[in-house]
Amino acid sequence: MRVSLTVNGRPQEADDVWEGESLLYVLRERLGLPGSKNACEQGECGSCTVRLDGVPVCACLVAAGQAEGRDVVTVEGLADHARQRAEGGGTRGTGGSETGTPLRDAQRWKAEGGDSRTGEGTELSPIQQAFLEAGAVQCGFCTPGLLVMADELLERNPNPADADIREALCGNLCRCTGYEKIMDAVRLAASR
């Protein structure tokens, strides 16, 4: 079947989608957006977290057909999403406009054009920049999901207590950092 949806502010279509396929598979394999990670495919790790009509969900548990006509933001569009929020104080309109992140840019997205260790010269969202500066990234596999989740937390609650951060991130597993640097990163982003 064909699935039409908005990804990072731009309309996209995926063809030959199997009816039992997940949104995560569509994003990674059909649209070539590998930012959302596939680790467990059972909702346990949070590394596939995306925004679906603004709501953070595990993309591995959304059936592709359920995403038809809906608005998805992935980590590749997070910088743009955060910029628009800062500028307009609102959410992006769906489809068609010049706003959003084109698929080709999203596919090629990496922290380039500068120093990938400091993020200098690259457009990053405040939460991405804070993760780099706080040393909250080791292997990076959990990072996209944590970024999407933490960004949404700060959107709702710009001044979270530690308990709020822990609660918001309790569905995202990290096997490297021990979480302390991740906590530091969210506190840092909130303080700015």
């Binding site: 009816e19 495919e41 059972q42 909702g43 591995c60 959304v62 059936a63 359920q66």
Partner: peptide, 20 residues
């Protein structure tokens, strides 16, 4: 989908029809 998709992802269930 938090129960259904786990079963489909792991091949435990292959229904002829999914009813969204």
């Amino acid at each position: 989908g938090t129960d259904v998709m786990v079963e489909i992802n792991f091949g435990h269930r292959r229904p002829d029809h999914l009813l969204d």
